[in-house]
């Protein structure tokens, strides 16, 4: 029992469960079946959290190497803008093939943007927070340039599907996020990538002397982060069926970083937890949904969130726990979540 209590993920998980239970009682439809699809508050939470889960996933890898990526929101805006611009130029916006191709192009653009970040950090040696601040500032300008400052509306069925469609009774956006989580989990835990990442984040010097090509790995995580941000941008823009270069992904970098930290990955790098990040992202999304559902006035939403965040951050400070609970409890290492 004490082992469970000591786990860093205990409090976030407990809060999530409480929030979900609260939702179960307050919403008249928590999970129901309608037209062969699953509907209800719970499904909305899963669907709505998809972009944040994706962004936070990339952020986890970046933070594991001791970096940070502030540009994710701008990358989201750019990828949405690219996709909507190209789709609006299509003769037939409902052509599945063309839409898929366009999605591919948008993601490719996002990967290139990630490569830019990675090169600034790993090759030029700029501090990650500043290196990615550049794209954060300029990226939104680029997105505005692509959309010519307008909001581009699209009426593409296939495009809308990635946000609001259903497949096998489940929301497509959720499936995309789930697939991404599975992919990253496999990539980091079934290959040696996770080990090498944690090694680089844990001690760059020792990693170099053990023959690890830290530079290539660092670039790679920024590329992955860019790609996932791009995917999140597509889901966001498909959801509103338009490209909004101003509000797409606005401030999402902060939520994503928060999700990672709540999930037990330290900002200094090293050990990381994919499951923790997913938990953190869903928690943040659920928190937003719950405050509305329980009738906390809309104006208090953010305040409520802030209080939970402050509590969570303090609960994860070893010094705070030591001072409050009287004795020092060693921080349990976050274990790899895939037992192989």
């Amino acid at each position: 029992m004490t082992a469970i209590l000591k786990n860093r993920l205990f409090w976030p998980a407990a809060i999530l469960v409480v929030l979900l239970v609260v939702n179960m009682f307050t919403s008249n439809q928590f999970v129901t079946v309608r037209d062969g699809h699953l509907f209800g508050t719970f499904i909305d939470i899963l669907r709505g959290s998809a972009p944040l889960v994706l962004v936070a996933l990339g952020m986890t890898l970046v933070i594991a190497t001791g970096g940070i990526d502030l540009s994710v929101g701008s990358v989201m805006a750019i990828s949405g803008a690219v996709a909507c611009l190209l789709i609006s130029d299509l003769g037939n916006q409902n052509s599945v093939g063309s839409v898929l191709l366009i999605i591919g192009i948008a993601i490719l653009v996002s990967l290139v943007l990630g490569l830019w970040n990675g090169a600034l950090v790993a090759v030029i040696g700029i501090q990650p927070i500043i290196a990615t601040l550049i794209l954060m500032v300029a990226g939104r300008g680029i997105a505005q340039l692509i959309t010519d400052g307008q909001i581009i509306n699209v009426q593409s069925g296939p495009y809308a599907t990635i946000a609001s469609g259903f497949f096998l009774a489940l929301p497509v956006a959720f499936l995309i996020a789930a697939a991404a989580v599975a992919l990253i989990t496999l990539l980091t835990r079934r290959t040696a990538l996770g080990l090498l990442l944690e090694s680089v984040g844990g001690s760059p010097t020792a990693s170099r002397l053990a023959g690890i090509g830290a530079r290539r790995i660092t670039i790679m995580v920024y590329v992955v982060s860019g790609g996932f941000a791009g995917l999140a941008g597509l889901i966001y823009s498909a959801n509103i069926k338009s490209a909004d270069s101003i509000s797409a992904g606005n401030l999402i970098e902060l939520d994503a970083i928060l999700a990672v930290v709540i999930g037990g990955t330290a900002l200094i790098g090293g050990r990381f937890s994919i499951a923790g990040t997913v938990l953190g992202a869903i928690l943040i999304q659920t928190l937003g949904v719950t405050v509305v559902a329980v009738g906390v006035p809309a104006k208090a939403t953010l305040l409520f969130k802030a209080i939970v965040v402050v509590a969570l951050c303090l609960s994860q400070s070893p010094t705070f726990r030591q001072k409050v609970f009287g004795r020092f409890k060693p921080r349990p290492a976050v274990r790899a979540e895939v037992p192989a």
Binding site: I129, L267, A306, C313, L314, S317, T319, F320
Partner: peptide
């Protein structure tokens, strides 16, 4: 509490 400035002031932002 040795909370990183980034996280502490992020919480301050929300608050």
């Amino acid at each position: 509490f040795k909370v990183e400035p980034f996280i502490a002031t992020l919480a301050g932002l929300f608050l």
